[in-house]
Computed example of a mutant assay.
Amino acid sequence: MKTLRGLPVLALALLLSGCDAVLFSPAGDVARQQRDLIIISVVLMLIIIIPVIVMTFVFAWKYRESNKAAHHEYDPEWNHSTVLELLIWAAPLLIIIALGAVTWTSTHKLDPYRPLERVDNVRSVAPNTKPLVVEVVALDWKWLFFYPEQGIATVNEMAAPVDRPIEFHITASTVMNAFFVPSMAGMIYAMPGMETKLHGVMNKTGNFEGISANYSGAGFSDMRFTLHSVSDADFDAWVAKAKAEGGHLARADYLKLEKPSEKEPVHYYGTVDPGLYNAILNQCVAAGQMCMSDMVKHEQHDDHGMAGMAPAGHPHE
């Protein structure tokens, strides 16, 4: 019997052993603050939930039919208690106020478009620190990364120096997707013809997984990449490796890469056609396509021209 009693505990342990609690073991400061926000929110809600659950069982036990001692407490004329009303309304109200304050503060503080103000909880970002700019394109079904400062591009692999702020510029080629490195920062969408931004930082060296968090078709489950968080020297070596091993990423090569493919292997491009990311963003990579930015400028010019053409007044007015 003792062995049978221990089976549920063993089964639960086996189930939990398969869970990857990456959200609760972050490697970056932004993800760490988001984890703390989850914990704070859960604790605040449990302040109400736990007493309610406990009182449910206490009342059910105390006022059970077989407890004759509790029968004399029955008061059919009872209809109001000021103390009870205060407890019922004040406690949830205080929790709501606390959650509202936490939500309002964190919404501004953890805005993905907001440049980082600190490296971790004890170090601020040094003045004049230049973030590492990474341009991201969600393809079917792979990730393309541009490093404009380094002049390279990679597929399904990226690297970043530890403790250096990273500024992501993110778009997509065809369908909406979602860029997510759980160890570094929150999820943000990638949309064709639009650019979203994300700021993050890694505080630990190691290899971390990035995923697609928005279903985008048959190859969605294998749309993953590796983020190498490394020292400055190792990052320079990684860039040198990409330059040495990679070829040139021209527009024609991108159009081939853009075609759907699953389980795309990692590969590097040592040089990239100038303006390729902007062409992808504006959906004008192929020859003869008009860029969306030029289309907007053309429409604005036409609107201004029409606005300047005021109707002629009637000669008798």
Rank of each mutant, 00 (worst) to 15 (best):
V137N: 02
V137M: 05
A138T: 05
A138N: 08
A138Y: 05
A138M: 08
A138H: 09
L139K: 03
K142M: 09
K142F: 00
W143G: 02
W143Y: 10
L144D: 04
F145N: 00
F145Y: 06
F145I: 00
F146T: 04
Y147L: 07
Y147K: 01
Y147E: 05
P148I: 09
P148L: 10
E149P: 00
E149A: 14
E149S: 14
E149K: 13
Q150E: 15
Q150G: 06
Q150T: 03
G151Y: 06
G151V: 07
I152H: 03
A153E: 01
A153G: 06
T154W: 05
V155E: 02
V155Q: 00
N156F: 07
N156W: 03
N156V: 04
N156L: 10
M158N: 00
A160D: 08
P161L: 06
P161V: 06
V162N: 10
V162F: 02
D163C: 06
R164P: 02
R164S: 08
P165D: 04
P165V: 06
I166Q: 01
F168A: 00
F168L: 07
I170A: 08
T171M: 11
T171Y: 04
A172E: 04
A172C: 11
A172T: 11
A172F: 11
A172L: 11
S173V: 06
S173W: 14
T174K: 11
V175D: 13
M176T: 15
M176L: 10
M176V: 11
N177F: 04
N177G: 15
A178E: 11
A178M: 12
A178W: 02
A178Q: 12
A178G: 14
F179K: 03
F179W: 10
F179S: 03
F179A: 04
F180V: 12
V181K: 03
V181Q: 04
V181S: 01
S183P: 00
S183E: 12
S183L: 05
A185D: 14
A185T: 12
A185P: 05
G186D: 12
G186Q: 13
M187C: 10
M187V: 10
I188Y: 10
I188G: 07
Y189N: 14
A190S: 14
P192W: 11
P192K: 09
P192H: 14
P192Y: 12
P192N: 13
